[in-house]
Amino acid sequence: MNPILELKEVVKVYEKKRVVDNVSFGVTRGKIFGLLGPNGAGKTTIIRIITTIIGADEGAVFIDGEKLNAKHPADIGYMPEERGLYKKMKVGEHLMYLAQLKGMSSKEAKKKLTYWFEKFEIKDWWNKRIEELSKGMQQKVQFIATVVHEPKLLILDEPFSGLDPINTNLIKDEIDELHYKGISIIFSTHRMEQVEAICENIVLINQGKKVLEGSVKNIKSHYKDNLFQIHFEGALPELPSNLNIKQQQGNTIIVQLENDKDSNGLLRHFLDQNIRIQAFNEILPSLNEIFIKSVNQVSYE
């Protein structure tokens, strides 16, 4: 199956600055994909290219194997970081308008909206003005606007910025549900802890360039330092000679294995000495560490 989205060597230049510089990546159908990067890395520009808001100077974008064209916005649901609504409009009217702009008929839109209004238990909002709603309520409306036309590809740019914990969870649950239904989701953020929890694959952009790409699992194991945390009972046992203790705190030690050594050997060593191991786990770097590491690497170069 071809990827839902594919970027091939996309370039965007503003006043001689390459804001997006030769970026290629693909988004697997039905997966949650993280588009990561520090502020000003070019994430939003890339999203704007995908959503046909701006055109790429070089390279190509394919959606569902088809070159990006004017029909595609109807297949995409985009929730920008800078988002807002017409304050004076009524909620129902507003959503009808946005749905119809995505090519839905008014009947269809009405039906879908009724479904969402029931789901979010906000049926009595239909005739309220947007300005009467609280910020969190407006975010719900915004979310409905993004998904009402049942897009194949959902792009969420910093979806949780400005949300309180309750609404964050609500949106998270919705993302999970849409994911479950098989919708492909691009999730753009600079907040790594969210990515780790949600995304399967990521691409890391810095200063317009692609720095990293792959599944979260692979990236983590690629960046791992072979560190293991061992929690045992009794006194500190004798350790193999090639083992380097990084940290010791009571009955917990952190050790680093040599690159080609396998952790089973270490475990066996403990077991052979009849030491009771209470916990043995590999310490993987957090995406945040990887993120900082790779971003700094680039800026030192």
Partner: peptide, 8 residues
Amino acid sequence: IVEVMISS
């Protein structure tokens, strides 16, 4: 609202 608008 404008960015929401011009995505469609």
